[in-house]
Simulated scan of single mutants.
Amino acid sequence: MTEKLADPSTDRETMLVELVDESGVAIGACSVADAHRPPGRLHRAFSVLLFDAHGHVLLQQRAAIKTRFPLQWANTCCGHPLPGQSVAEAAAIRLREEFGMTAALTKVGVFTYLAGDEKTGRVEHEYDHVLIGVVGDGPPRPDPAEIAHWAWLPPQEVRADVAQNSGKFTPWLPQVLEIADQAHRG
């Protein structure tokens, strides 16, 4: 089975995101670039965390070309639904684009965060929906334009590494991991 990878000609910065209020109600739209300019505009996002049969989580090191938090380790994949698009649909598409994988995804929580990237000057201010899935033994097929490296790791090892080396991880990963791992063990 061949999965379509992300179209490198697509400028994700021009795509639209859905602006939301503090309770997640849609209030408008703007481009990805505009949403991530300081001070940041609160918008809908999603974070996917996949588990394998052993309870390990699939992390990715974001590609060097990412406009926010490049080369930092993050959850399996993340992104933004288009205005009016379901979070689950957008997450499934992004999982195929970034990792060439499919999984039944379940929404397990939501949180809001605000974080600035000192290296790029961009800001993440997201109303982040967390989704989890369980996959079999098939290897990921990452798109190198999206993912520099990837690894299956036990959640407790990730927590310990974040505590010791927080700068190598995206600022949203700890909260995504907590929500996802609690739901998975649930």
Results as ranks from 00 to 15, higher is better:
residue 121 G to K: 07
residue 78 C to V: 01
residue 62 R to P: 00
residue 58 L to S: 02
residue 73 W to N: 00
residue 62 R to V: 05
residue 80 H to M: 03
residue 80 H to Y: 12
residue 124 E to G: 05
residue 101 M to I: 12
residue 104 A to Y: 01
residue 87 V to C: 04
residue 107 K to E: 15
residue 110 V to F: 00
residue 71 L to K: 04
residue 104 A to D: 15
residue 95 L to C: 05
residue 102 T to K: 14
residue 108 V to M: 05
residue 95 L to K: 02
residue 129 H to V: 13
residue 73 W to K: 06
residue 114 L to R: 15
residue 70 P to E: 05
residue 84 G to C: 07
residue 115 A to N: 09
residue 59 L to F: 03
residue 86 S to C: 07
residue 103 A to K: 07
residue 93 I to T: 15
residue 100 G to I: 10
residue 131 L to E: 02
residue 65 I to R: 08
residue 91 A to Y: 00
residue 118 E to S: 13
residue 107 K to N: 04
residue 109 G to C: 08
residue 83 P to C: 07
residue 104 A to P: 11
residue 117 D to W: 14
residue 116 G to T: 12
residue 67 T to A: 13
residue 94 R to E: 15
residue 109 G to I: 08
residue 79 G to K: 04
residue 64 A to H: 04
residue 68 R to Q: 08
residue 129 H to L: 00
residue 74 A to R: 03
residue 72 Q to N: 14
residue 78 C to W: 11
residue 71 L to N: 05
residue 94 R to Q: 14
residue 130 V to N: 02
residue 69 F to I: 05
residue 72 Q to G: 05
residue 101 M to T: 10
residue 126 E to Y: 13
residue 88 A to P: 11
residue 73 W to M: 07
residue 70 P to N: 09
residue 83 P to T: 10
residue 98 E to Y: 04
residue 102 T to A: 14
residue 109 G to A: 04
residue 81 P to W: 01
residue 88 A to D: 14
residue 81 P to C: 04
residue 75 N to K: 01
residue 128 D to W: 00
residue 131 L to T: 06
residue 67 T to C: 07
residue 83 P to I: 09
residue 112 T to I: 15
residue 66 K to I: 00
residue 59 L to V: 02
residue 83 P to F: 05
residue 106 T to R: 15
residue 73 W to S: 01
residue 131 L to D: 01
residue 125 H to K: 13
residue 60 Q to T: 06
residue 131 L to Q: 06
residue 108 V to F: 09
residue 103 A to Q: 10
residue 119 K to C: 02
residue 114 L to D: 11
residue 80 H to R: 03
residue 59 L to W: 02
residue 79 G to T: 07
residue 102 T to L: 10
residue 101 M to E: 12
residue 115 A to Y: 08
residue 119 K to D: 04
residue 90 A to C: 12
residue 58 L to A: 02
residue 59 L to P: 01
residue 124 E to D: 15
residue 93 I to H: 14
residue 101 M to A: 14
residue 101 M to N: 04
residue 120 T to I: 12
residue 97 E to L: 10
residue 85 Q to D: 14
residue 108 V to D: 02
residue 94 R to W: 01
residue 60 Q to G: 05
residue 66 K to F: 12
residue 69 F to K: 00
residue 65 I to T: 12
residue 69 F to T: 00
residue 90 A to W: 07
residue 68 R to Y: 13
residue 105 L to S: 08
residue 72 Q to W: 02
residue 98 E to C: 11
residue 91 A to K: 09
residue 116 G to Y: 02
residue 61 Q to M: 11
residue 127 Y to R: 08
residue 60 Q to S: 12
residue 61 Q to H: 05
residue 96 R to L: 09
residue 100 G to F: 03
residue 108 V to K: 10
residue 75 N to H: 08
residue 126 E to V: 10
residue 96 R to M: 07
residue 75 N to V: 06
residue 116 G to N: 08
residue 65 I to A: 10
residue 78 C to Y: 09
residue 105 L to D: 06
residue 74 A to N: 04
residue 122 R to C: 10
residue 129 H to P: 03
residue 131 L to P: 03
residue 87 V to A: 06
residue 112 T to W: 01
residue 92 A to I: 06
residue 103 A to P: 11
residue 104 A to F: 09
residue 64 A to R: 06
residue 129 H to W: 12
